[in-house]
């Protein structure tokens, strides 16, 4: 089992997202995250899919995606230089004065930005790799057990210009 990334160019049409996600669910392929947005050409959408699978399943996934009429191009980002980021919001509630100092300290070290605050709750925004976000989440969960709310954006990726 290995972590993989795929970049997909698809027709920007009704039902295409359902077609792609249906392909994964119908064939029991698991997805870690899927993001989609329109490209510079408004008739084309671009998806970044992250998943964990063995080699054989991954080959099959790429072939199944490629043969879908709605899919224009499939690019395997797993082993090529890419820039990969995920947006993450974390709301931490019921903060004491001591907690707040701790949050600021953590934010500074981990590159998070405090974007909202109401006296007891803080909202952090982070843009890191999926992996780094996982580590941050683990840390915050430990530090502020049962007091955090997470919103993960899913990975977006683009090929590196300079390898």
């Amino acid at each position: 089992m290995k972590k993989r990334w795929l970049c997909l160019f698809v027709e920007n049409e009704i039902g295409v997202l359902a077609r792609i996600s249906g392909l994964f669910s119908g064939k029991s392929y698991s997805v870690d995250s899927l993001t989609v947005g329109v490209t510079e050409d408004e008739t084309i959408s671009r998806m970044t899919i992250s998943l964990t699978s063995d080699d054989k399943t991954f080959e099959q996934i790429k072939k199944q995606l490629s043969r879908s009429v709605e899919v224009i191009r499939v690019i395997d980002y797993t082993d090529i230089p890419i820039h990969l980021k995920e947006i993450l919001f974390v709301r931490i509630s019921g903060l004491t004065e001591k907690d707040k100092t701790e949050v600021f300290r953590i934010s500074q070290i981990l590159g998070a930005e405090v974007i909202d605050y109401n006296g007891s709750d803080m909202l952090l925004e982070m843009i890191h790799t999926e992996n780094k976000n996982n580590n941050i989440i683990a840390l915050l969960k430990k530090q502020f057990a049962n007091r955090i709310e997470l919103v993960r954006g899913g990975s977006v990726a683009v090929e590196a210009i300079t390898a």
Partner: peptide
């Protein structure tokens, strides 16, 4: 019907 048949046909489309 497009949603129902999506996984059992080659291509399904509603004319909009």
């Amino acid at each position: 019907i497009v949603g129902i048949t999506r996984s059992i046909c080659k291509y399904a489309v509603t004319v909009h």
